[in-house]
Computed example of a mutant assay.
Amino acid sequence: MSDKRVASITPPNKAYPREELEEMMERWLKANIDAEKAGDWTTHLGPMYTEDAVYGWNIGPNEQFVANGRKEICDVALGYQMKGFEDWEYPYHDIIIDEKRGTVIGFWKQLAPVTATRPDGSRMEIAGIGGSWFEYAGNFQWSWQRDFFDLGNAKALFFELAGAGVLEPVVKEKIHKQARGVLLPGHYKLHEEPGRLQKIRNTAALVKIALTGR
């Protein structure tokens, strides 16, 4: 697969003054808050990426999302991918800065709209660890970003949101396309899927283990 479609697992490293990286994060956190208030991530976050930046995240064992370049990041990662999530919040709760390598890791939560609550009154959110790993490029811009989150918990929450009838129509359409095997913009397969017969064998083997312990 072309390397343009695959986000590198580790970014190149370059040292920067810690004060500059701390200011970058202050600007980034403010831009995120402004984006959430406006429901517009492209306008507020787009300028904070270099022209050739790469932004990606994994979606299970055989699929990942990658946006190459600021335009694609704005159009797809911050644009299309965020459609239907305008009322969600993504507050950061911890940040690690490594000025010797020019990298930052920020840990955030994914909170569904305040109207999405459970019977006990608690707000729905994706459990587990979520965050972003950044490479700084100077000039208060990122050249590389890779998000991480608990995919199993994300799927579980979407089942819950669907059952509560609070999914936005555009999100339902995305789920419908994925269920039909359509790759959403920016999504790429990592390798060939196993054939139907192999999938049946794999499923049968796991069922046997679950039932017999062997």
Score class of each variant (00 low, 15 high):
residue 2 S to A: 15
residue 3 D to P: 04
residue 3 D to I: 15
residue 3 D to F: 15
residue 5 R to I: 13
residue 5 R to H: 15
residue 7 A to V: 15
residue 9 I to Q: 03
residue 11 P to R: 13
residue 13 N to Y: 06
residue 14 K to Y: 04
residue 16 Y to G: 01
residue 16 Y to E: 00
residue 18 R to K: 08
residue 18 R to I: 07
residue 19 E to S: 14
residue 19 E to N: 12
residue 22 E to R: 02
residue 25 M to C: 13
residue 26 E to A: 14
residue 28 W to H: 07
residue 30 K to A: 14
residue 31 A to Q: 05
residue 33 I to G: 02
residue 35 A to I: 07
residue 37 K to A: 13
residue 37 K to G: 07
residue 38 A to T: 03
residue 38 A to I: 07
residue 39 G to T: 12
residue 41 W to K: 04
residue 41 W to H: 04
residue 42 T to L: 04
residue 42 T to I: 15
residue 42 T to Q: 12
residue 44 H to M: 01
residue 44 H to L: 01
residue 46 G to P: 02
residue 47 P to A: 10
residue 53 A to G: 04
residue 53 A to R: 01
residue 54 V to G: 04
residue 56 G to M: 02
residue 57 W to C: 08
residue 60 G to I: 04
residue 61 P to E: 10
residue 62 N to D: 13
residue 63 E to W: 15
residue 69 G to S: 10
residue 69 G to R: 06
residue 69 G to A: 12
residue 70 R to Y: 08
residue 70 R to G: 09
residue 71 K to C: 13
residue 71 K to L: 03
residue 71 K to P: 02
residue 72 E to P: 03
residue 72 E to S: 11
residue 75 D to R: 06
residue 75 D to L: 09
residue 77 A to K: 02
residue 77 A to W: 08
residue 79 G to A: 08
residue 79 G to K: 06
residue 80 Y to G: 05
residue 80 Y to C: 01
residue 82 M to S: 06
residue 84 G to S: 03
residue 84 G to F: 10
residue 85 F to A: 11
residue 85 F to T: 09
residue 86 E to W: 09
residue 87 D to G: 03
residue 88 W to M: 07
residue 89 E to K: 13
residue 93 H to A: 00
residue 95 I to P: 00
residue 95 I to C: 00
residue 97 I to H: 06
residue 99 E to I: 02
residue 99 E to Q: 08
residue 100 K to I: 08
residue 100 K to L: 07
residue 102 G to D: 02
residue 102 G to R: 07
residue 103 T to E: 13
residue 104 V to T: 02
residue 104 V to I: 15
residue 106 G to M: 14
residue 107 F to W: 11
residue 108 W to V: 12
residue 109 K to H: 11
residue 109 K to C: 02
residue 115 T to W: 14
residue 116 A to R: 03
residue 117 T to E: 07
residue 118 R to M: 05
residue 120 D to C: 11
residue 122 S to A: 12
residue 123 R to A: 09
residue 124 M to I: 10
residue 126 I to T: 12
residue 127 A to H: 10
residue 127 A to K: 06
residue 128 G to M: 03
residue 133 W to V: 02
residue 133 W to H: 15
residue 135 E to N: 13
residue 136 Y to K: 06
residue 138 G to A: 01
residue 139 N to S: 11
residue 139 N to T: 10
residue 140 F to I: 09
residue 141 Q to D: 03
residue 141 Q to S: 07
residue 143 S to E: 05
residue 144 W to R: 04
residue 145 Q to N: 11
residue 147 D to P: 01
residue 147 D to E: 14
residue 148 F to C: 03
residue 150 D to G: 00
residue 150 D to R: 00
residue 158 F to C: 00
residue 162 A to Y: 15
residue 163 G to T: 05
residue 164 A to F: 13
residue 166 V to Y: 07
residue 166 V to S: 01
residue 168 E to C: 01
residue 170 V to F: 06
residue 172 K to W: 15
residue 173 E to V: 11
residue 175 I to V: 13
residue 176 H to K: 11
residue 176 H to Y: 15
residue 177 K to A: 12
residue 186 G to E: 04
residue 187 H to W: 08
residue 190 L to D: 07
residue 191 H to S: 11
residue 191 H to A: 12
residue 192 E to R: 09
residue 196 R to Q: 11
residue 197 L to Q: 05
residue 197 L to S: 02
residue 199 K to Q: 15
residue 199 K to D: 11
residue 200 I to P: 01
residue 204 A to Y: 14
residue 205 A to D: 12
residue 205 A to Y: 13
residue 205 A to L: 12
residue 205 A to K: 08
residue 206 L to C: 03
residue 210 A to L: 14
residue 211 L to Y: 14
residue 214 R to G: 00
